[in-house]
């Protein structure tokens, strides 16, 4: 319980240990802690930025998807319309061709009928003349009755 030199010895030791702590223990550890704190903070900031980027990318992707879908729908609609148009055009053309063919056939038929009629008329006339000639050879002068015969032929 005596107070003696120990008190001074202890004070000196205390001073030395405190100095040692201040010089060799405290700064390296506190610096490491600060550095780690900063590293962790940076890491968290990076993670946040990455999350934001991913969010943005997702949004962009979904927007692109929507646009693509709309484009596809548009192209499909256009193609359908075009197909309808083509079918319609083809139909119209086919109808026109059919009409034209029919008209041509009609014309040909009419022409041939006309020709046939002409020929028939000529033949009937000739036949009538021949018949009349045969009948009248004996009693009528061909020249005198030619006018009447022509009239008959014209009526055919």
């Amino acid at each position: 319980m005596n107070i003696n030199l120990t008190i001074i010895g202890q004070a000196i030791s205390f001073a030395i240990f405190v100095w040692f702590c201040m010089r060799f223990v405290w700064p390296p550890v506190i610096n490491a802690l600060e550095a780690r704190k900063k590293r962790i903070a940076d890491g968290l900031a990076d993670a946040e930025a990455a999350a934001a980027d991913r969010e943005k990318a997702t949004q962009e992707a979904s927007q692109t998807m929507t646009e693509a879908r709309e484009e596809a729908a548009r192209v499909l609609a256009q193609a359908e319309r075009r197909a309808g148009e083509i079918v319609e055009e083809a139909k119209v053309e086919a109808e026109a061709t059919a009409e034209r063919t029919a008209a041509r056939a009609q014309a040909e038929i009419e022409q041939q009928e006309q020709q046939a009629r002409e020929r028939l008329r000529g033949e009937v006339a000739a036949l009538a003349v021949a018949g009349a000639e045969a009948v009248l050879r004996r009693e009528v002068d061909a020249q005198a009755h030619a006018k009447a015969l022509d009239e008959v032929a014209g009526r055919l």
Binding site: F17, F20, V25, V29, A35, R36
Partner: peptide, 26 residues
């Protein structure tokens, strides 16, 4: 008193200085 005090103090600063020397941010 002095021997135990200084011995334990030396043990403390020795161990802590060793850890401090190796301290890193990892």
């Amino acid at each position: 008193s002095m021997a135990w005090a200084i011995g334990l103090g030396a043990l403390f600063v020795g161990l802590f200085a060793r850890a401090a020397k190796r301290a890193h941010a990892g």
